[in-house]
């Protein structure tokens, strides 16, 4: 069983600030983390390796600093790591990104065939949930998104049975390997790395691939050129101009405030009283 897990290094969006004047993102001092959703995929892949044997290769496309994310994956137990990095990839949208990653996976496959690819449900910076499906289509792999449980893998017949989150319930799906899986958050909990793996991660010779090594044949399909979508504008949400009417009474006793508020509310929205009455009954 050879599993490739796609992970992305992202800025910790909880710590991102917007410059109040220029509306640009201030990345200064914002730590980069492994996209949290990718950790569920990685852990699931590692569990499959634990149970069925095999190898886990992690793959990331990004700037040289993304090395940290890959090392982290190794500390959790991934066997090998590949960083695809090249200026030519700058500005790639999801279509271009999935092209590049799919191409890299084909290169990986030249050494050892790939049985499964894992991607995160979505990233916290791009937030699109498109790269996973994109890679699957480009590799002509079967696609299982929002998987909440892997029920069974039949190595002999190369089949997999999973539970997949749908809008109103859970689908139990059975399909064939190779396939691409994206994992739902909360499916598992990432393990705590052993000291041996920490040492391995710190020393692991990372594979760094430029666009040639990643097997990119058509440079018009990567970077800005290969990206159909164009960001035309980035802006801060405009604040609503009307401020709240602050309820104020002479006494400012809670009871008076509440009664005054209700009077205003039901004058403005007479129907609301009926809605409430209906709901409350």
């Amino acid at each position: 069983m050879h599993i490739v897990v796609c992970i992305k290094q992202v800025p910790d969006s909880a710590q991102i600030r917007v410059h109040p004047v220029t509306n640009t993102i201030m990345r200064q001092g914002v730590p980069a983390i492994v996209n949290p959703y990718d950790l569920y995929s990685l852990e699931e892949a590692l569990r499959i390796k634990d149970q069925y044997g095999g190898r886990v290769t992690v793959l990331s496309m990004g700037p040289p600093q993304a090395e940290t994310a890959l090392r982290k994956a190794i500390s959790f137990g991934a066997d090998d790591a590949i960083l695809v990095t090249d200026r030519a990839f700058a500005g790639s949208d999801t279509l271009a990104t999935s092209y590049a990653l799919a191409s890299a996976i084909r290169q990986i496959e030249k050494d050892i065939p790939v049985d499964m690819v894992f991607a995160g449900k979505q990233t916290i910076d791009g937030d699109t949930a498109q790269v996973g499906p994109g890679i699957a289509k480009r590799l002509d792999m079967l696609l299982l998104t929002y998987v909440s449980k892997i029920r069974d893998i039949d190595l002999e017949n190369k089949t997999i049975t999973v539970e997949r989150r749908a809008e109103g319930g859970v689908q139990v799906l059975k399909t064939k390997l190779p396939c691409l899986v994206t994992v739902l958050e909360g499916t598992n909990e990432m393990r705590f790395a052993t000291m041996t793996n920490m040492f391995r991660a710190a020393r692991h010779p990372l594979k760094v691939w430029d666009k040639e090594k990643a097997g990119i044949e058509d440079v018009t399909k990567i970077g800005l050129k290969g990206s159909p979508t164009i960001v035309s504008k980035v802006f801060a949400p405009t604040p609503k101009s009307v401020r709240a009417e602050i309820i104020d009474t002479e006494s400012n006793q809670p009871k008076d405030l509440a009664v005054t508020l209700l009077a205003k509310l039901f004058t403005k929205k007479p129907d609301l009283a009926k809605d409430i009455a209906k709901n409350a009954s």
């Binding site: 949208d93 937030d127 498109q130 499906p133 289509k137 696609l143 929002y146 809008e167």
Partner: peptide, 23 residues
């Protein structure tokens, strides 16, 4: 932008090689 919609949109856009803006 539901679980079904995102699964489908991402696949169709890649197959058609066109742009998709999410969410």
């Amino acid at each position: 932008a539901t679980t079904l919609g995102r699964d489908l949109a991402g696949s169709v856009a890649t197959t058609l090689k066109t742009g998709l803006t999410a969410d």
